[in-house]
């Protein structure tokens, strides 16, 4: 490691991250200038680019959160986020990862913003999830196998959440709606991102399946002991049909 390089980069990064513009003389000590383009203006380009790039990234990743919050407020909160949670990611696509949590910790802010941000982040994150495996069991193969041999799995792209608002409608209409509890998921079918509301039963199953579980274990789990068999079957069928849940033979499943 070169100490000179570290010293220069330390200075440069501080200068572009700093909220206060330093005096022209300070920049001129480190940076060459010309009569028509002084050192302070030169560093100003990097300072502005830094802020704008990160703010634009948040505005692009959380468009509806930004719209509902109002641009001034969103801008102020983005500035705070950039200052307090500077990027340590190798790629800009990850910068918004903690934004929803950041909003949740702001006590004075309505919870709808952090919930919307969670939802909008799931839409981004979905693109990077694993593809569903290829060796799935077809419905007609299930009958030939015992429940011990069948694994139930949630599609790797599924993000499930509950909200105190009808979040999908809020997001679609881009406006506030009265509170109403909702369960929803974001997932990916091939290349297209899907959103859907779930009923309480389906949500319970989806949030239970955080890892591959044998069918026998699912059926005997006390979480589901009050489920009506008819509702259970119907719910499961719908989840499979919509590619939210799938079955695999236990030999193909990685536990």
């Amino acid at each position: 490691m070169s100490r000179d390089v570290l010293k220069s980069q330390d200075w440069f990064l501080n200068a572009i991250r700093s909220a206060n513009v330093k005096s022209k003389q300070i920049y001129a000590k480190k940076i060459n200038q010309t009569p028509t383009f002084n050192a302070s203006e030169r560093m100003g380009i990097y300072r502005n680019a830094y802020r704008i790039r990160l703010k634009e990234c948040l505005a692009e990743d959380f468009p509806v959160t930004a719209k509902l919050m109002g641009s001034k407020k969103f801008d102020r909160i983005s500035e705070d986020y950039i200052r307090l949670r500077p990027s340590r990611y190798s790629s800009l696509v990850d910068f918004g990862e903690n934004f929803a949590k950041f909003l949740r910790n702001k006590r004075a802010l309505s919870k709808i913003f952090s919930e919307l941000a969670d939802y909008e982040w799931a839409i981004i994150d979905c693109r990077f999830t694993e593809n569903r495996p290829k060796n799935l069991l077809k419905p007609d193969q299930l009958a030939e196998l015992s429940p011990e041999e069948i694994m139930v799995e949630r599609d790797p792209s599924v993000f499930a959440m509950e909200s105190s608002w009808p979040l999908i409608q809020v997001w679609r209409k881009k406006r506030q709606l009265p509170k109403k509890k909702s369960f929803l998921i974001v997932h990916r079918r091939d290349r297209s991102i899907q959103f859907c509301s779930l009923d309480a039963h389906a949500y319970k199953i989806v949030s239970y399946l955080t890892q591959p579980t044998s069918l026998i274990a699912v059926l005997s789990d006390k979480t589901f002991k009050n489920f009506d068999a008819k509702i259970w079957n119907r719910t499961f069928k719908t989840l499979v049909k919509n590619e939210i849940v799938f079955y695999r033979h236990k030999n193909f499943s990685i536990l």
Partner: peptide
């Protein structure tokens, strides 16, 4: 693009 684990996500000049 950054130092001390921080990333400015910009292509910054080297001395």
């Amino acid at each position: 693009t950054g130092v001390h684990g921080l990333n400015a996500h910009d292509l910054l000049p080297i001395p």
